[in-house]
Design a protein around this nucleic acid. Structure first.
Lengths: 197, 197, 197, 197
DNA sequence: CATGAATGAGACTTCATTCAT
DNA sequence: TATGAATGAAGTCTCATTCAT
C-alpha cells in the first residue's frame, strides 16, 4: 500500500498492534521489548513511536483490540443460542481457546491496571458490558417465562463471569481442561435448574 | 535483637520477607526493585543478597509465606464449621481480605509461573492441597449422609475454588464487594441444595 | 563522519575496538571497565553494548585485531628475508615492540582462555598458523639445500615461538631489552648453525 | 593444636596460604573470592583478614610460598646432575608438572605485578636468583673445562629460562606435552653442543 | 514518513572489607 | 582469637525513548 494512500496510517498501526499482541501474549508485557516487536516486524523501533507514544499506549491498543474481539466473538453466542447452550462445553471451550491464545496477557492486563486509569476504565467497562449482556439475556428469559421472576439476574451474571474467569485461570495453571469443562457443565446445570421456572 | 542470638538470622530473614511482601503487593513484582526494598528497610541491598540469592528467590519466599498463611487461616475454616458455613459471607470475606492484602501479587505470581518451574510447582501444589481439603470435607459430608453419594466431589471442589478466584479477581478490578459476597452466598446455596441429600 | 554514511557503523565499531585495546593493554582486561572505555571515548556505556553484546565479545574483537595485526606485520617478515635474518635483532625487535604495546593483555588473554572456548580456539589457531608459517619457511630452506634434510622442522619452529614468547614475557617483567635481544641472536645463531647443511 | 600454643598463629597462616594456593591455582586470582577460600576451609571470612590485611597480601604470601617451593625443588636439580641432565626430559618434566599444578596462577602473577611493586620485586628477584644459579652452574662447568671459556653464560642462562617459560605457556594453551619435551631436548642438545669445549 | 544510532536511568548482582560481639 | 552480619562501591547489562538525517 503506498504511503500516501488514505488509510495507510491506520493500516500500519494495525499491523503493529497485531504483532504486539502476538508477542505480548507469548511472553507477557514486561518481558517483551520494543526492540523485539520492531525487529519481528522488520521495522525500526523509532517507527513504533510514530504510532504509539510509549509502550503502555501500545499495550492499551492491544488490549482494546482483544477486548473488542472477545466481545464480538463471545457474546454473540448469547444471541444465537437458547438457555441450555450456556451450560454447553462448546460455550466454555470458546473462552478456553481465546484464553490460551492470549496467554499471560490477561494477567498483565490486571497487573497494569493498577497503574493506569485508562486501562482500568477499559477493563471495567468490558466487564460491565459483559455483565449487562448476560443480564439482558436472563431478563429476556424471564419474560419468556423460562426463568423464575424472582431470580437475581445480576448475581447470576456475576457468578457466571466469575466462575468462567476462575476456571480459565486454573487452566493457565495447567489443570486438566476436560475436568474444567466438566465443572463448568456441572455447575451451570445446577444453577440453571435452580433458577428455571 | 542482638545479632548473636540464636534465631536472629531467621528473624532477619523474616523481616525481609515481610517487607518484600508489602512492596511486591503494592507495586507488583516487576515494578518493585531490590533497591527499594532495601531502602525501605533501612538496610543495604547487599544484605538482602545475604539472605536471598536473587530477586526471584525472594519472591518465592514471599509466596511461600503467603501460601502458608492462607492455608492455615483458610482451610482451618473447613474443619470448624458445618456445611452451610461454606456458603457464608464470613467464609468468602476471609478470602476477600487476604486477596486485598496481597494486591497485585497474585497476578504476578501467575505471570512469573510461566517462566519458573519451582514457582509453578509451588502454586500447583497449593491448588491441589486446597482441592484435596475440600474434597475430603465433602467426602466426610457424604459419609454422614448430608450430601448425596453420587455427587462428583472433585468437580464441586474445583468449582468452589474457581468461583472464589474469579470473584476475587473481580474484586481486584474494583467490583463492589457486597455484590460479590451476595453472589457467593447465592451460588453456594444453589449448589449446596443441588447436592444435599 | 555522518551517521548515515555507508561504513559508518564499521568505523564506529573500529573506534571502540581501538579504545578498548588501548585500555585493556594498559590495565588488563579485568581491571578495565566498560564505564571507563565509554567515558574515555565520550560515549555512553549503552553505545558499546550496541556494538558488542558483552565485555567478552569486545575482548575477542580486540584480540582478533591484535592477532591479525601481528600476523600481518610479523610473518610477512619471513617471506622477505633469508634464513639469517631470523636471527637478527630487527626480527626480535619487531615482536618486542608489539608486546610492549599490548602490555598486560597478552597475559589476560591466556587467563581468559581457560574459561572461553572461542578465545581458546582463536589463540590456538594463531599459534598453529604461526608454527605452520615457520615450518613451511624451513621446508623451503631444506629444498634449497640450505638446511639439513633430517631437521625436525616442527620442533625447531615450536622452539622459535617458545623462545620468543619466553623472552617477551621476561621483557614484560622488566628484564633489559638489550640482553634479551642478545640472547635471541645468540640462540638463533647456535640453532641455525646446528641445522644448516 | 591449641590456640595458645606458640606457632599456632604461623600454622593457621600456613593453612590459609595453602588453601588459597589451591583455589587461586584452579580458578585464577581474580575469579577466586575470599568467601570461597574461607568457606572451603570451614572458617569465616573475617578470620582471613586477621592473618592478611587484604586479598593482595594473601596473593603475595601464596606466591612467596610457590616461589620458594619452586626454587628448592627445581634448582636443587642443578646441583645434583651433570651438564647433560639439563637437556633431559626429566628436567623439563619437573617444570611442566609444577606449571600444571599452579594453573592460571602464573599468569595472574604477571598480571598483578604491573600494579604491585612488592610483587614485581619478588618475581624479579626470583628470576634473578634462578638466572644466577644457572650462571654459577655454567661457570663451574667452564672451570672444569666442560664448557668453552668464551661462552656468554648470562645469555645462555636467560635463554634457558626463556625457552622453558615459553614452552610452558604453550603447554597451558594445550600443545602436546610430548612435542614440547622433544623440543626442549632438541634445543638443549643443540645449544650444549654449541657451547661445549 | 522512516530509521540508524545514541543514550539516561536504572536494574540486578558481586565482593572485599569492617565491626560489634 | 574468631566470626556472623552488614555494607559501600562498583560491575555488567538492559531498555524505553529521542533525534538528526
Amino acid at each position: 500500500m503506498p504511503k500516501v494512500m488514505p488509510g495507510y496510517k491506520a493500516h500500519a498501526r494495525q499491523r503493529i498492534v497485531r504483532e504486539a499482541e502476538r508477542i505480548f501474549s507469548q511472553k507477557g508485557y514486561h518481558r517483551s521489548t520494543m526492540t523485539e516487536i520492531a525487529r519481528s516486524m522488520g521495522v525500526s523501533k523509532a517507527s513504533l513511536y510514530q504510532y504509539f507514544g510509549n509502550k503502555e499506549d501500545l499495550l492499551i491498543a492491544v488490549l482494546e483490540r482483544m477486548t473488542e474481539d472477545r466481545q464480538i466473538r463471545m457474546y454473540g453466542f448469547l444471541d444465537d443460542h437458547d438457555v441450555r447452550s450456556i451450560a454447553s462445553g462448546e460455550f466454555f471451550g470458546e473462552f478456553l481457546r481465546s484464553a490460551k491464545a492470549s496467554g499471560m496477557l490477561g494477567f498483565d492486563l490486571i497487573y497494569e491496571m493498577s497503574r493506569n486509569d485508562s486501562l482500568r476504565g477499559m477493563v471495567c467497562s468490558e466487564y460491565e458490558q459483559g455483565l449487562d449482556k448476560i443480564v439482558s439475556f436472563l431478563t429476556k428469559l424471564k419474560k419468556r417465562g423460562i426463568l423464575r421472576k424472582d431470580v437475581d439476574s445480576r448475581a447470576i451474571a456475576t457468578g457466571i463471569i466469575g466462575l468462567r474467569d476462575g476456571l480459565l485461570s486454573m487452566s493457565t495453571l495447567g489443570l486438566d481442561e476436560k475436568l474444567l469443562k466438566r465443572v463448568w457443565q456441572n455447575w451451570m446445570i445446577m444453577v440453571l435448574q435452580s433458577i428455571m421456572a
